[in-house]
Every structure is written in structure tokens, then in C-alpha cells.
Design a protein around this nucleic acid. Structure first.
Length: 321
DNA sequence: AAACAGGTGCTAA
DNA sequence: TTAGCACCTGTT
């Protein structure tokens, strides 16, 4: 069992407040972030809007799981629409994790090794499209998710809608995950999913993707696909390795590499990104996903991943087609 | 009610 | 190599 860390004398009362057993802390950020854009730009499926218990002043709050821990995260002063801030308010269960661990989880999850301000500046210098897209997406950060969860999530994303994907992930976690604080449950391990029948997976509403998810879980838990080793491969090798899994094609593989491995030089192409490339860079000429990808890699190089996310969020938010 | 949603696997040219 | 089709499920 966890050690007691609820002794009031130890708490820095000015920056924490009690809500039942949960604690709330403020996490200062090395550079500003747009929480709404970062959580709602389609890169992650675990977060739902909620009220922040005991803090009605925090209007924009999300509940979900990061770093294997249930959290509620809020951005102060966030108005509706894009807004950035220098800190976050985070609520967590101290019997699950510590204040310092939570700070570490937040900084890692939101990729604070990236200097996004300079990434924004570099991309702006590539032309007027990025000037517009970046100013629209200011403070959007590419998240660093758990690798296995990213792989499973993007397998589930094929030919599917975001609300559905979120629902499946919630169902899988509720059924097969472990409690991880604030009433949340962690995403189930590959071992656990590998041990479930297809019909049990199908009950979580993953549809025809049940077989793909199962295949991934079996290959990963058996070591046939080594998620750790993939981290030290080149993007091309890593991509080829991931695509050995049923249901993992070019798009899913690139998403896993970008959001699970933080390989920023990949350029995942879905229908929206293909439309954006066609519209903004190729004079509206229709392009195959392969062609769009090559164009993105050529134009944006090491920062293709961020460029892709800006194009996606920018175009989608405009409701263009 | 029929079409569609942030792809992929399979088959046929 | 590439075009065309089916595919669970939930919404509009």
C-alpha cells in the first residue's frame, strides 16, 4: 500500500487545496500552452470536459488519464476559443502518485522538451499558409502518449469517428483496465487484451477492428513486435515494423510514431491532411495519400509532425471540405 | 433512410 | 503499383 502523504503539516497550503482525498496543484509551464487545442486537435482520445471540483473559476477543465494516472487538468483564464496560459491546475489522487510525479507526468505528456515557440517560428518562415495555420494553433503541443495505448488507439481509429474511438477506449479501460485515481481506469495492457476473446473485445464496440486490436496485443505481448526497440529505429524502419501488425497501414503507423514515439519528422496523412496539402500547396489538384505525404516530408522536414497537426487543426476548425 | 466518418486488406487490372 | 470495394458502429 501507498505511504501516507496526507499529513497536513507537509502540505504547502497556498498552492494546494483538499477535495475529499484529491489534491490540487498548480503546475508552472516552461512556455505557454493552449490546453483546448492540445487536447481537442484529434491526437488523443482520453479526455472529456468536466467541472473542476471546488474551483468554479476554472471554466475549462478535462478529466482523463496521462502517465498511467487519473487526472483533472484545467487551464486558468481560458476563454472559449483559443487561449494560452503559463500554468495548469491539476487535480490527482495522492494515494496513487505524488506531487512531483504529477509535475513530471504533465511536462512529459505535453512534450516540454520541445521548444514550440521556435518550432512555430520556423514553420512560419516556410510561407503564408503556415503563418495563418500557426497563428490559429498557437500553443498547440504534440502530446507524448504511452506507446502501446497510441498503437491501440490508432488501430481503433480506422474508418471511425472521434466520439466512437473515445467510447471504445473508455469501454476497454473500464472493463479491462486498473483503477488509477479519481475514478479513472488505466488503458489495459497488451497482455490483458491478448488474453481476451474477440467477442469480449467486440462487446466494447470496436467492431471489425477487434481482430486488429487482438493481433497487435498478441504481437506486442509476445515480443514479436518490440515497442521498445522500435524507439531506436529510424522512422522508415519503425514504420515497416509497425505495419507488420494487421490493421496498421501507413497512416496508423505514422500516427503511432508521432504521438507515441514523438518522431517529429513523420507526416501522417488522413483525408483532411490530404485535402489541406491539395488545397494549400498543390493548387487544388487531387492527390493520393502517398503523394501528400511526400510533399509534407519534402516541405517541412524535421518539423513535419507539427506542420501536419497545424494543417489538420486549422483546416478542420474552418469546416472546409 | 441512406450516407458518412481522421484507413486498411484483399482482389483484380 | 494502384483503383475499387467491404467493413462495425453511431449520428445526421
Amino acid at each position: 500500500m501507498e505511504r501516507e502523504n496526507l499529513k497536513p503539516a507537509d502540505l504547502d497550503a497556498a498552492s494546494r487545496c483538499r477535495d475529499d482525498t484529491a489534491l490540487t496543484i498548480e503546475v508552472r509551464l516552461p512556455e505557454p500552452m493552449d490546453l483546448v487545442a492540445s487536447l481537442e486537435c484529434g491526437q488523443v482520445f482520453r479526455w472529456g470536459r468536466c467541472a473542476f471540483p471546488g474551483r468554479p473559476d476554472l471554466k475549462v477543465a478535462y478529466k482523463g488519464v496521462a502517465g498511467g494516472t487519473g487526472l483533472i487538468i484545467a487551464q486558468p483564464d481560458a476563454r472559449t476559443g483559443a487561449a494560452i496560459s503559463d500554468s495548469l491546475w491539476v487535480q490527482y489522487d495522492p494515494s496513487v502518485t505524488s506531487t512531483e510525479e504529477v509535475r513530471g507526468i504533465i511536462l512529459r505528456y505535453f512534450s516540454y522538451d520541445d521548444h514550440v515557440s521556435s518550432i512555430e517560428a520556423k514553420l512560419k518562415s516556410t510561407g503564408h499558409v503556415m503563418v495563418d495555420a500557426v497563428s490559429f494553433c498557437r500553443g498547440l503541443r504534440i502530446i507524448t502518449q504511452d506507446r502501446w495505448e497510441a498503437l491501440a488507439s490508432y488501430i481503433l481509429s480506422t474508418n471511425n469517428s472521434i466520439p466512437n474511438i473515445s467510447r471504445i477506449i473508455r469501454n476497454l479501460s473500464e472493463r479491462f483496465g486498473e483503477p488509477c485515481g479519481l475514478g479513472e481506469r488505466s488503458f489495459p495492457t497488451p497482455e490483458r487484451i491478448a488474453g481476451e476473446s474477440l467477442s469480449r473485445l467486440r462487446e466494447c464496440k470496436c467492431g471489425f477492428r477487434d481482430q486488429n486490436l487482438s493481433d497487435a496485443a498478441i504481437k506486442v505481448s509476445s515480443g514479436d513486435v518490440d515497442l521498445e526497440a522500435i524507439g531506436s529505429m529510424t522512422p522508415e524502419e519503425a514504420r515497416r515494423e509497425l505495419m507488420r501488425i494487421r490493421g496498421v497501414g501507413p497512416k496508423v503507423a505514422d500516427c503511432v510514431l508521432l504521438f507515441g514515439y514523438h518522431m517529429l519528422e513523420v507526416f501522417p496523412v488522413d483525408v483532411w491532411v490530404a485535402r489541406a496539402v491539395s488545397r494549400y500547396y498543390l493548387g487544388g489538384r487531387q492527390v493520393s495519400p502517398k503523394e501528400a505525404r511526400e510533399e509534407g516530408l519534402r516541405r517541412f522536414g524535421r518539423l513535419a509532425g507539427y506542420a501536419q497537426e497545424y494543417l489538420f487543426y486549422y483546416l478542420r476548425s474552418q469546416g472546409l471540405s
